[in-house]
Protein backbone atom coordinates (compact mmCIF):
# COMPACT_ATOMS: atom_id res chain seq x y z
CA UNK A 1 0.00 0.00 0.00
CA UNK A 2 2.78 2.30 1.06
CA UNK A 3 4.82 1.35 -2.02
CA UNK A 4 1.95 2.24 -4.25
CA UNK A 5 1.75 5.71 -2.83
CA UNK A 6 5.51 6.18 -3.18
CA UNK A 7 5.34 5.05 -6.77
CA UNK A 8 2.53 7.44 -7.39
CA UNK A 9 4.53 10.20 -5.83
CA UNK A 10 7.59 9.35 -7.87
CA UNK A 11 5.59 9.23 -11.06
CA UNK A 12 4.10 12.61 -10.36
CA UNK A 13 7.49 14.07 -9.54
CA UNK A 14 8.95 12.65 -12.73
CA UNK A 15 6.05 14.09 -14.64
CA UNK A 16 6.70 17.48 -13.12
CA UNK A 17 10.36 17.24 -13.87
CA UNK A 18 9.69 16.30 -17.48
CA UNK A 19 7.28 19.19 -17.81
CA UNK A 20 9.78 21.61 -16.30
CA UNK A 21 12.60 20.51 -18.56
CA UNK A 22 10.23 20.80 -21.51
CA UNK A 23 9.34 24.35 -20.46
CA UNK A 24 12.98 25.18 -20.05
CA UNK A 25 13.77 23.82 -23.49
CA UNK A 26 11.03 25.94 -25.06
CA UNK A 27 12.10 29.07 -23.21
CA UNK A 28 15.69 28.63 -24.29
CA UNK A 29 14.69 28.03 -27.89
CA UNK A 30 12.53 31.14 -27.86
CA UNK A 31 15.35 33.14 -26.36
CA UNK A 32 18.11 32.02 -28.65
CA UNK A 33 16.64 30.89 -31.97
CA UNK A 34 16.40 34.34 -33.56
CA UNK A 35 19.91 35.51 -32.77
CA UNK A 36 21.76 32.21 -32.98
CA UNK A 37 23.30 33.13 -36.31
CA UNK A 38 24.42 36.63 -35.37
CA UNK A 39 26.03 35.49 -32.12
CA UNK A 40 27.78 32.51 -33.74
CA UNK A 41 29.21 34.79 -36.41
CA UNK A 42 30.50 37.26 -33.81
CA UNK A 43 32.10 34.40 -31.88
CA UNK A 44 33.67 33.05 -35.06
CA UNK A 45 35.22 36.44 -35.77
CA UNK A 46 36.80 36.43 -32.31
CA UNK A 47 38.08 32.91 -32.83
CA UNK A 48 39.59 33.89 -36.17
CA UNK A 49 41.52 36.67 -34.50
CA UNK A 50 42.74 34.21 -31.91
CA UNK A 51 43.91 31.83 -34.65
CA UNK A 52 45.86 34.68 -36.21
CA UNK A 53 47.55 35.37 -32.86
CA UNK A 54 48.46 31.73 -32.37
CA UNK A 55 49.93 31.29 -35.83
CA UNK A 56 51.36 34.81 -36.19
CA UNK A 57 54.98 33.83 -35.45
CA UNK A 58 54.94 31.35 -38.35
CA UNK A 59 53.84 34.07 -40.72
CA UNK A 60 56.65 36.35 -39.69
CA UNK A 61 54.74 38.51 -37.25
CA UNK A 62 56.70 38.64 -34.00
CA UNK A 63 54.66 37.51 -31.05
CA UNK A 64 56.02 37.90 -27.52
CA UNK A 65 53.77 35.11 -26.30
CA UNK A 66 54.90 32.60 -28.92
CA UNK A 67 56.34 30.32 -26.27
CA UNK A 68 52.82 29.76 -24.99
CA UNK A 69 50.94 29.87 -28.26
CA UNK A 70 53.18 27.12 -29.66
CA UNK A 71 51.60 24.79 -27.15
CA UNK A 72 48.16 25.68 -28.40
CA UNK A 73 48.87 24.89 -32.03
CA UNK A 74 48.18 21.15 -31.89
CA UNK A 75 44.90 21.88 -30.12
CA UNK A 76 43.79 24.26 -32.84
CA UNK A 77 44.89 22.04 -35.69
CA UNK A 78 41.36 20.79 -36.23
CA UNK A 79 40.13 24.30 -36.93
CA UNK A 80 43.10 25.24 -39.11
CA UNK A 81 41.62 24.05 -42.39
CA UNK A 82 38.32 25.89 -41.94
CA UNK A 83 40.18 28.97 -40.87
CA UNK A 84 42.51 29.31 -43.86
CA UNK A 85 39.63 28.57 -46.22
CA UNK A 86 37.56 31.27 -44.58
CA UNK A 87 40.42 33.72 -44.82
CA UNK A 88 40.36 33.27 -48.58
CA UNK A 89 43.40 31.01 -48.91
CA UNK A 90 42.79 27.78 -50.78
CA UNK A 91 45.89 26.07 -49.34
CA UNK A 92 47.76 26.39 -46.08
CA UNK A 93 49.56 29.76 -46.04
CA UNK A 94 52.52 28.27 -44.16
CA UNK A 95 55.29 26.51 -46.08
CA UNK A 96 56.29 24.10 -43.35
CA UNK A 97 52.78 23.58 -42.07
CA UNK A 98 50.86 21.52 -44.53
CA UNK A 99 47.15 21.16 -44.35
CA UNK A 100 45.39 20.00 -47.46
Amino acid sequence: MKDDRDDDHDARRDGWRAWLSQARFFAEEVYSARYRGAIARARRDEDDLFMLLVFSEMMGVPNPASYYTLELQPLLLERFHDWHKRMGMERSPLDHFRCC
Partner: peptide
Protein backbone atom coordinates in the same frame (compact mmCIF):
# COMPACT_ATOMS: atom_id res chain seq x y z
CA UNK B 1 24.56 24.04 -39.71
CA UNK B 2 23.44 24.60 -36.14
CA UNK B 3 23.70 28.35 -36.68
CA UNK B 4 21.37 29.82 -39.28
CA UNK B 5 19.72 26.68 -40.57
CA UNK B 6 18.18 24.88 -37.63
CA UNK B 7 14.93 22.86 -37.77
CA UNK B 8 12.76 24.50 -35.13
CA UNK B 9 9.58 23.42 -33.40
CA UNK B 10 6.65 25.15 -35.05
CA UNK B 11 5.25 26.65 -31.86
CA UNK B 12 8.63 28.16 -31.03
CA UNK B 13 8.95 29.44 -34.57
CA UNK B 14 5.46 30.91 -34.46
CA UNK B 15 6.28 32.70 -31.19
CA UNK B 16 9.31 34.14 -32.85
CA UNK B 17 7.70 35.13 -36.05
CA UNK B 18 4.77 36.72 -34.24
CA UNK B 19 6.89 38.72 -31.79
CA UNK B 20 9.21 39.85 -34.61
Amino acid sequence: DGVDYVPTNRFVLWGHHFTS
